[in-house]
Design a protein around this nucleic acid. Structure first.
Length: 571
DNA sequence: CCCCCCCC
């Protein structure tokens, strides 16, 4: 949990804003939020949100959220008590000769949606009383009232911050070339610090484009024994630092700027993050003189509990890898970019779940020796109510290298209890496929060509087939259906119960079955489709007929057809 | 200074 004692709201930001100096960015807390009807303008049904914000010293109730940000309120990312970092704010004079003004909040980072109440209230309450005299004439004006409690005795607040700052510096501020400070001690009120940590994660270079321009960025995470922090480098700094930073290496970082962590982009526990500037130095250090032992802060969840987690939540997960599929490429439709992806399955004592690896993780991971895999910040994915996990660039992955009790326990459990992974995967398959409903792919399934036949991988089966002079062999395959051919997968069948032969359409009302040698005025719908099945060895197209397809999709062909006609986008 | 984790 975040330690609210550590958070300091910006000092005098509201005073400056109301004076017209809107250049500064500030960390403030929302203390109240109301939707207001738009009485003056006729912009359709547009709602405005009026918010009250507090900085370390004052409160201002005359703030309006730019309507571009309304979605943040509507998606509950911004509410009362939310900590926001104001990036763009404007002062607007109300044009009615009353000299009133409004602050328009144009752009923010959300620091903490569900924050506790920070210790500004007591001080603000005091200021409130002290400024009561000044307040009276302004109280209860209309919408644009500014609470004049921003006018406050200088001494009290100055003393507070001076004391605080002095206190911090005496502990934290290093003399030149002194020991780096602990990552947990980073705050916005010190300069001249350096930190030393091991790189636990590094993103690719991303390109961005928004109203303020375009550029490149990458980020990496530094960790020491006290904590972890994300460092982001843009443009020049991105190209300068990207090739220097390597996962697993130790660096001393100095002269960078600290800001509150943006929860939209930052999944680490630190309340701050670091932005590299042109002054920022990053020097590689030998891992030998890295005296701190990094302790990863994992908060593992059992696999059977993932179903209860919110979709898109980030979790720490550990398990035994029991299935590794071959990587495939997927292409994003909007960006037209291709990404490698690989599906694996993991299990623990409570269950199993499929994990989609992306990018380098997908390309590089190919360990089929049942390693223990630990994920930090892996994303919960939901597809038609079926949960899986998906790596992101924020996900940190450790294979057999996380030295914890939990790792040892899982290893012992797996090797001593010797669980039948086929059985476990199988029970998972049944469970998942019943949850899937109408969902076509990818789908776990258990595809039995002949129930008595032994389970083989495709590769084993092909070798046996070839050595058997290409005579038919029977085997069972266990894998994932990774694709369904959506075209021509339903056909018109002979209406006779026991017959599945395709009928020849003689006319709109005449269907001929060559097998029965009869002509009927009706037919029944049946499946015949090609699915791609991925197992531990390869991905193989498999043709399945009505019975197996019905078992896989969960509904008869006729019902599927009705559904498809109702859902146009399937075509 | 902020791209968002991609598919079905």
């Amino acid at each position: 949990m975040m330690n609210f004692d550590q958070i300091q709201l910006s000092d005098n930001a509201l005073t400056d804003y109301l004076k017209g100096d809107t250049r500064k960015k500030a960390l403030v807390q929302i203390t109240d939020l109301k939707a207001i009807e738009n009485r003056q303008c006729d912009e359709g049904n547009l709602v405005h949100y009026r918010i009250t914000i507090a900085d370390a010293t004052s409160t201002c109730s005359s703030c309006i959220l730019n309507t571009d940000l309304n979605h943040l309120v509507e998606s509950a990312l911004i509410k009362a008590n939310t900590l926001i970092y104001i990036k763009d704010i404007a002062l607007d004079m109300v044009d009615d000769n009353t000299n009133r003004s409004m602050l328009i909040i144009n752009d923010v980072d959300i620091v903490q949606t569900n924050s506790g109440t920070i210790d500004h209230n007591s001080r603000n309450a005091e200021l409130y009383q002290q400024s009561n005299v000044q307040m009276t004439s302004h109280v209860l004006q209309s919408l644009s009232t500014i609470n004049r409690n921003i006018v406050q005795p200088k001494s009290s607040s100055t003393n507070y911050f001076d004391a605080k700052r002095h206190n911090d510096e005496s502990i934290l501020k290093p003399s030149d070339h002194a020991m780096p400070i602990a990552i947990a001690q980073i705050n916005q009120y010190n300069n001249g610090w350096s930190i030393k940590g091991i790189v636990t994660n590094k993103s690719n270079v991303h390109h961005y484009k928004n109203s303020r321009g375009e550029g490149t960025l990458f980020s990496f995470d530094l960790q020491d024994s006290t904590g972890e922090i994300q460092i982001t480098a843009f443009n020049n700094e991105c190209s300068r630092l990207f090739s220097i930073i390597e996962i697993g290496q130790v660096y001393v970082l100095a002269n960078a700027s600290v800001k509150p962590a943006n929860q939209q982009y930052n999944k680490l526990s630190s309340i701050y993050e670091i932005i590299a500037t042109s002054q920022t130095s990053v020097s590689h250090t030998s891992i030998d003189d890295f005296i701190h032992v990094p302790i990863s802060k994992y908060n593992f969840i059992r696999l059977n509990e993932i179903a209860m987690q919110q979709s898109d939540a980030y979790l720490d997960v550990i398990g035994i890898v029991n299935l590794v599929c071959d990587p495939t490429m997927v292409t994003n439709k909007t960006h037209k970019k291709s990404y490698p992806t690989r599906i694996i399955s993991i299990l623990d004592e409570t269950g199993s779940i499929s994990v989609t690896l992306w990018q380098d993780h997908a390309r590089d991971f190919n360990d089929k020796s049942n390693p223990v895999i630990a994920f930090k910040a892996i994303k919960v994915h939901d597809f038609n109510g079926c949960r899986s996990l998906s790596t992101t660039s924020k996900t940190n992955l450790k294979i057999n290298s996380l030295d914890t009790e939990r790792t040892e326990h899982l290893k012992r459990w797996f090797h001593e209890q010797h669980p039948d992974t086929r059985k476990i995967a199988n029970s998972n398959i049944i469970q998942v496929s019943t949850q899937q409903g109408l969902n076509l792919s990818p789908n776990y399934f258990y595809f039995n060509l002949l129930f008595s036949a032994s389970i083989k991988t495709f590769t084993e089966a092909i070798i046996e087939y070839v050595s058997n002079q290409s005579k038919t062999i029977y085997f069972s395959i266990k894998g994932i259906c990774t694709e369904v051919d959506k075209h021509s997968f339903i056909y018109k069948m002979c209406p006779v119960d026991t017959c599945t032969k395709k009928v020849i359409e003689i006319s709109d009302t005449q269907y001929r079955c060559v097998k029965c040698d009869k002509t009927y005025d009706v037919f029944k719908w049946g499946y015949k489709t090609t699915i791609q099945v991925t197992d531990n060895s390869i991905t193989q197209p498999v043709i399945i007929f009505n019975k197996q397809a019905e078992a896989l999709f969960g509904i008869p062909a006729a019902e599927m057809l009705t559904h498809m006609m109702n859902v146009n986008h399937w075509y």
